[in-house]
């Protein structure tokens, strides 16, 4: 629950950041397009499996809020005209989506899956989304490096985004110990750790700047 709330909180902080400042400076559209793709490919089970009201509501919330972020940065004046396309240069299709798709296909085939049923495709999309989520923050980290000086709200949103997966690691350890029959998803574990590690450097400078109480900037 804490992990999920960190995730929700990061989304709220980002929406605030966009709507209050009415600009998208220092924000990577590509990261949010990747997240939208992650949620759309992971939550196809909204139509096939019901887990709980909480689970379904959160899924819809993630898809809706991420769509609204992408919409605001792409199309909504005056936010969209402040979006700096020239700084957001990570080639996300070639270096994120394509490799994750290949990896998901390989994982699926190696673990004995086929490609001929809806459930197989659904399973493969799910695996793809796990891989893609782990690196979806990369375009944002690149933009951050370019701007160097990070606005408070932008820093906060990335901090909560990172904390969310870090807390999931705690959740996996807890469930593995205390929940009989909890099924291990090693791809999820691996990607969750990778995802958290990608934030490590950022966490360090973020916490240092909070301690100093000064402006938050990244080193050269």
């Amino acid at each position: 629950l804490c992990g999920d709330m960190c995730h929700v909180f990061s989304i709220i902080v980002l929406l605030l950041r966009l709507r209050v400042a009415r600009n998208a400076q220092g924000i990577s559209l590509r990261t949010h397009e990747l997240f939208l793709l992650v949620f759309l490919t992971r939550y196809t089970d909204l139509f096939t499996t019901f887990y709980s009201l909480y689970n379904s509501v959160m899924k819809v919330l993630y898809i809706a809020s991420t769509s609204s972020i992408v919409y605001a940065i792409r199309l909504q004046e005056p936010i969209c005209s402040t979006y700096d396309r020239a700084q957001d240069t990570f080639r996300h299709w070639a270096f994120a989506v394509a490799p994750c798709a290949v990896l998901a296909l390989l994982t699926h085939l190696i673990s004995g899956g086929s490609l001929f049923s809806f459930v197989d495709i659904q399973e493969m999309l799910w695996t793809f989304s796990i891989y893609l989520e782990s690196i979806a923050i990369l375009p944002q980290l690149i933009v951050l490096q370019r701007f160097r000086e990070v606005e408070n709200l932008t820093g906060n949103y990335i901090f909560f985004m990172g904390s969310y997966r870090a807390l999931y690691i705690v959740n996996w350890i807890f469930r593995a110990y205390y929940e009989p029959g909890y099924r291990h998803h090693y791809v999820v574990y691996f990607c969750g750790v990778l995802q958290t590690l990608l934030y490590a450097d950022f966490f360090y400078y973020y916490l240092m700047s909070k301690r100093r109480g000064g402006k938050f900037s990244l080193p050269t």
Partner: peptide, 10 residues
């Protein structure tokens, strides 16, 4: 194997 109840996390 079908998507079971094991994908209950977000």
């Amino acid at each position: 194997e079908a998507m079971g109840m094991d994908k209950d996390e977000l």
